[in-house]
């Protein structure tokens, strides 16, 4: 199964210059290699800060695009890794191994399998 590991962090903390944060940052590239070596890696991208982002929305057929998001929350989505893992526990173990899990948090989301019916809410 494929899982998306969504990496959230507080930029003030991650880029604040603390030795822990700097160590975590320097290990990030290495962790991609670890995942490649073990055969879990599918793809990964780090994201620029939200100040370089746009948000697009269509309402009543009209498109609006605003800059941002500028959310009040301190933690922001900063990167995505897609991995292939046999189950959720294995995916969670791999997510916990990411250096940024020590500074921020990594959300593990199963990638939708379109052969199964959509959820009923």
């Amino acid at each position: 199964m494929r899982y998306a590991c969504l990496i959230y962090y507080d930029p003030k903390k991650l880029f604040g210059g603390s030795p822990e944060a700097n160590a975590a940052l320097s290990e990030c590239a290495n962790y991609d290699e670890v995942l490649k070596e073990s055969g879990h890696f599918v793809t990964a991208e780090a994201l620029e800060l939200p100040e370089s982002a746009m948000t697009a929305q269509v309402r009543d057929g009209k498109m609006s695009a605003v800059d941002g998001p500028f959310m009040e929350t301190k933690e922001m989505l900063g990167g995505i890794i897609i991995i292939e893992a046999p189950d959720l526990n294995e995916a969670a173990r791999l997510a916990a191994g990411h250096p940024l899990a020590r500074i921020g948090a990594v959300e593990v989301r199963p990638v939708v399998d379109f052969s199964t019916p959509p959820p009923q809410l």
């Binding site: 070596e37 073990s38 055969g39 879990h40 294995e90 173990r93 191994g97």
Partner: peptide
């Protein structure tokens, strides 16, 4: 467990 699971995957890879 943790190290063993990691090693298991590495072994099969």
């Amino acid at each position: 467990f943790e190290a063993a699971e990691e090693a298991l995957h590495e072994a099969f890879a």
